[in-house]
Computed example of a mutant assay.
Amino acid sequence: MSQRNPEHFHVSSAVVLTSPAAADRLVETLAEMPNVEIHAAENGKIILVIEGRSSGEMGATLAAISGLPDVMAANMVFEHAENLEEV
């Protein structure tokens, strides 16, 4: 019998904090990143969703976001995974 790892689709929400003065510029930068979708931005708080094939892929995206200029903090809030064979 063949052992097969099913493919998964991961989605997570994250909150990014910046200064209100830098928020618009940072939102533009985040919106250009692959697999990142901005859902809200107000007073230096940015809510976004990250999609990927693995937790590691999403973690790498969050780490890249953390390293952007003007980012004070970037924290994953929620993660969910779906087996693509069941979707």
Rank of each mutant, 00 (worst) to 15 (best):
A73R: 11
N83K: 05
S54Q: 08
L17Y: 11
T61R: 02
A31D: 15
R4F: 08
A64R: 15
A74M: 07
A23Y: 03
S2C: 09
A31M: 15
S54C: 04
L62C: 01
T18Y: 01
N5E: 15
A74E: 06
N83P: 04
N35V: 08
K45W: 01
A31V: 09
A81V: 06
V16L: 04
V71H: 00
I38Q: 02
A81K: 07
V49W: 07
R25T: 14
G67R: 07
A14L: 09
E85V: 05
I65R: 00
E7V: 13
G52H: 03
M72I: 12
E82D: 07
M33N: 03
V49N: 11
H39D: 14
V15C: 09
G52F: 04
T29K: 08
I65G: 00
E79L: 09
N75F: 06
V11D: 02
H10M: 05
S66H: 06
P20E: 04
L68T: 02
V77S: 08
A21P: 03
S19W: 06
D24H: 09
A73M: 12
S12I: 05
M72A: 11
L26T: 05
H80V: 12
S19Q: 14
A64Q: 14
P6A: 03
S13R: 07
V36S: 03
E82C: 02
H39F: 15
V27E: 04
T61M: 04
E85G: 12
V11A: 08
L26M: 07
S13A: 09
L68D: 02
I38T: 04
